[in-house]
Amino acid sequence: MSSSRSTPSPSGSPSGADAPVPAAAVEAATVRLRRAGCVFAEEEAALLTEAALATGGGAAALDRLVELRAVGQPLEHVVGWAEFAGLRIAVGPGVFVPRRRTEFLLALARDLLLRAPGPVPVVVDLCCGSGAAGAALAVSGRRAEVHAADIDPAAVGWARRNLGDRGQVHEGDLYAALPADLRGTVAVLVANVPYVPTADIPLLPAEARTHEPLVALDGGGDGLQVLRRVAAEAGQWLAPGGTLLVETTERQAAAAREVVRAARLTAALHHDDERAATVVTGTRPG
């Protein structure tokens, strides 16, 4: 379990006397997870037990889930969900797991949405992955027209599951996926673009580089390739006063801000020490 991921939190211990999974089986799972290198083995065993019970299984189902986790599958993929901004976001093999640090980007986006003019502001979650940001903004307390888009068909399927009837999900390459009539109307444009430099992909934790799609991680030579494409067209899609928000790293922050500034947007950097999160924003002049 890495603190950078939006890891599920156990809702309580399943190992009591009345639990369908015997306490001995939960303890055995904990030992096995600890031997596999899981730092938070006890918490993970509780989550895996909860997942086993949710499928109607018992100790045998728990054993199967522990095996998947022990061989390196992300915990979120094994249990079927990730905690993000107080929501359970459905995820599974082949989709990017939302990170806890992205909750900082979400907080900035939510604040902009609450202050956006008009009765029903338009929100777009570009490079949406599982649709976590779009789903969270859809329940932010402000009525909005929510759209999400991704180039990966698998991600689109998960995003549709997570947004349900609270938003529309489109498949395609960046803005090409969006309805043309959204041009010039978007109040909040969240684009959690891939930003890992290609040469750094082998340095990522095994959970990410092995089990998450490369298209969600690889940002090109300097990690800013997709950001350049997003920023270049953002002004055509944003409403006057609308804002683009993109997550980046502290190391890339200055260069990312210049990319946004070169697109004739008013650029700013935001950093949250607690989450180790950095966000660049670009606002279309009003």
Rank of each mutant, 00 (worst) to 15 (best):
V39Y: 11
A262V: 01
A276M: 11
R284V: 06
L217H: 01
L65V: 04
V188A: 00
S3T: 12
A132V: 13
A138M: 03
L217T: 00
G129V: 02
E145M: 10
V31Q: 14
D111I: 00
A191L: 09
V146Q: 00
T185A: 12
A254P: 00
A90C: 08
A36H: 06
R34D: 04
D18E: 15
P8N: 09
R115D: 13
G241K: 05
A155N: 02
A54D: 05
L53Y: 01
R160M: 01
V66G: 04
G282P: 08
R251A: 14
Q73E: 15
L33V: 11
R88C: 07
L112N: 01
V120R: 14
N162Q: 11
L137G: 05
E76R: 04
A45P: 05
L178N: 07
G134T: 09
V193S: 03
L113P: 01
R34A: 12
A254C: 02
P10D: 13
D200N: 07
G56I: 13
E76Q: 15
S13E: 14
V169E: 02
L238E: 07
P179F: 12
G131H: 05
R160E: 11
V259Q: 05
P22E: 09
L87G: 09
R161W: 13
P74R: 02
G118A: 10
L137H: 12
I151K: 04
L108T: 06
G235T: 09
A277G: 12
A234H: 07
A177F: 06
F40W: 15
T283V: 12
T210H: 13
L65Y: 00
V280R: 04
A277C: 04
A187L: 09
A216Y: 06
